[in-house]
Every structure is written in structure tokens, then in C-alpha cells.
Amino acid sequence: MNQKSKRQARAERKHIAAAKKAEKNARLVTTVVQENIKKPRKNKNPDSIFAMHMSWCLDYADRECSWSWGCQRDWTEAEWAENIKPKLDEWSKLTWKEIDEFSSDTGHKMHHNMDCDVICEEAQLRLLEIELDGDVIFRFRLGNKLRLWGFRKLQEFQIVWYDRQHKIYPTDPD
């Protein structure tokens, strides 16, 4: 009988040790998994570009041919030096949040996204032709009628068009 109870005691101790080991392993796995989960910073959206500084590129600029209204798509060296580049340099010093806060005297946002289906049909077709299709295009206001159009990919503004006459999204009836 002593033999059996020793055997039983040994089996019980082995079972308890195995259960403790399994519990410890489960705690370790949970701890490791929890440590590897990325947590957002408090009060910040880690996916937001608004905290990032604006950058820009010309890789997608559509500067060939002209629009049906008679304007060349390409800008001149003078337009680049006087109208476009200085503004890009100025905006590159700002975050997208600061850029988003620019508004006119009437409260209208000066720089903003627009759905691609509201720009002129010629521009919509041109985007498909040059394989730059997207649902939303971004527009910078450079002056009274001057606009710079492109796509925003994270913090980078990918310049597509320089619109001298506000014809890509006309607001005045002709």
C-alpha cells in the first residue's frame, strides 16, 4: 500500500509540476505577444499625415501636349521660378495640418482634396490615359486662378498639372 501511495504522490507531483509549467509558458507567450503589439500613442493617430512635413515630386508631372482650351500642360521656366517652386518651398516647411488650415477670407479652404469625378471630363480622361487613376486628387491654390493639381501619397505631393486658368475645375461659367 505504501508503494501505491508513493507512486500516486509522485504522479500527483508530476502532474502539478506540468500544470505549473504549462501555466508559466502560457503567461510568457501572452506577455511576448502583448509586447510585440504596436500601440498608438495617446491622443495621436499614427496613420495621420497631418503631423508630417509636406514633400513633393515631379515624377508624375503630365507636361506633354496641351488642353482643349489652348493651354500647354507644361509650365515655362519663368512660371516654375516665379509661381510654382517658391510656393512648394514654402509649403515644404509646413506640416499637412498647417497647410490644411489655410483658408480664404470667405472661409473656403485654399488647399484641399477633390473627388476626381468633379473635375472636368478632359482631365478625368487624361488621368486614365496616363494611368494615374484615383478617387481623390489634391489641389493647391497658387494665386487667383492658378492651381497645382496632384496626388497626395502619405506626406508627398505628386505634382500632375499646373492649371493657369482654373479650367480643370471651372467655377465660372464661360
Rank of each mutant, 00 (worst) to 15 (best):
Q72I: 01
R73N: 04
R73T: 01
D74E: 05
A78M: 12
A81P: 03
A81T: 08
A81N: 07
E82N: 12
E82F: 06
E82V: 14
N83D: 13
N83G: 02
N83Y: 11
K87S: 10
K87A: 11
D89E: 15
D89G: 05
E90V: 08
W91C: 01
K93I: 12
K93E: 13
W96G: 03
E98P: 02
I99L: 12
D100L: 09
E101P: 04
S103Q: 13
S103I: 09
S103N: 10
T106D: 09
T106I: 03
T106R: 05
G107Q: 07
G107S: 06
H108W: 05
H111C: 02
H112L: 12
N113A: 11
D115F: 10
D115Q: 14
C116K: 11
D117S: 08
V118L: 09
I119H: 08
Q124E: 13
L125A: 09
R126D: 04
R126W: 01
L127V: 11
I130K: 07
E131M: 13
E131Q: 15
D133E: 12
D133I: 09
D135H: 09
F138H: 02
R139Q: 12
F140A: 06
R141C: 15
R141H: 04
G143S: 13
N144C: 03
L146R: 06
R147S: 08
L148P: 02
W149C: 12
G150Q: 03
F151H: 14
F151E: 11
R152T: 03
K153D: 10
Q155H: 13
F157H: 08
F157N: 04
I159P: 06
